[in-house]
Each structure stands twice: as C-alpha cells, then as structure tokens.
Amino acid sequence: MQNGNSVDKNFVLSLLNSIPDPEIPVVSIVELGMIKDIIIKDNKVLVQIMPTYTACPATWQIQNDIEKKLKENNINAQVEIVYSPAWTTDRISETALKKLSEYGIAPPQNKISLKELQDGEYTITCPRCNSNEVTLISPYGSTPCKALMRCNTCKETFDYFKCHI
C-alpha cells in the first residue's frame, strides 16, 4: 500500500486512466466516463463503474482489468457495476471524442436520435476525409454502441458511435 496506510483517490484515478477500453483501446475507461465513483473507506477501495450498455461484454473484462491493475499496485479493490444514473455519451470527455475521430470512429454528435439517423436528418463527419456527405448503412454495427456508415466522398465505410442520451 502506498504512503503506508492511506490510499489516495487521485492515485487510483490515474491508475484507472491507464486502463484502455477493450473494444476501443485508444481511449481509457476514465475518458469514456465509465467511472462513477471511487470510494475509499478504511483502506478498502470500491470502484463503481457504469456500463455503456447493459449487456456490453466488455464490462466483465473491464472489471477484471481494474482489479488486476490495482492489485499490481498493492491495492485491494472491489468493483461494483452500477446502472443508476445511466451512462450517456455526454460523459465521454472532449479529448476522447478527438481520439475516437483520429482512430477512425465518428464520435457521437449533436444528440442525433435513431429516427433522425434513419430519416437521413443528420450531420455526421467522415473521420477519414472530413466530408459531411455520408450515408447510413446499418443502425447496428460491429458493437451495440456503433452504427455503420459510408462516406460518399472517399467511399470508405466507417463506424459511428451512436448518441446514447
């Protein structure tokens, strides 16, 4: 245990910030806004995480990653999955939105609903060539959180991180 007997919350947070999301490894679980709280009581650490989707298979992986990472730093932590309040895409940090785009995933934009997505009433920017001329291929993509789009300018397909609000 660092500093003898007290665990520092910021230290725990910095460790968590080094854990990548298993599906989108360029962003950390902290940047995605998945950490609800870190509760330290009598040197016991409880990390509360908010899953992005109820059935997101990565949630259990993340739970294990957190326990492992903290254990490596001699911190015994318990991870709790909490559903309330619900995670929304508004929790994703500005830096993470930029990283998503650089990684080739169009970040959630302008609170576009599924209806607007299906009816073509949206402005989504292609992460490769920055064109706004894009078409929806499928509202469901490679993971539950993404939709599949095609850019009409560079003709490439790309993932769009759907708004979850």
Partner: peptide, 24 residues
C-alpha cells in the same frame, strides 16, 4: 426499488432503439 429503477433507466434507452427498428 433502486436496482429495478437503475436497470430500467439503462434499458429503456436500448429498448427505444429496438422499438424504432421493429416499427420501421
């Protein structure tokens, strides 16, 4: 009940998408 209301808040966002999909 906190567990049920927490799950419901999360699930309703997902089901909204399902509902749009089947209606369409």
């Amino acid at each position: 009940d906190e567990t049920l209301s927490g799950l419901a808040q999360k699930a309703v966002k997902e089901i909204k998408y399902h509902y749009r999909h089947s209606s369409w």
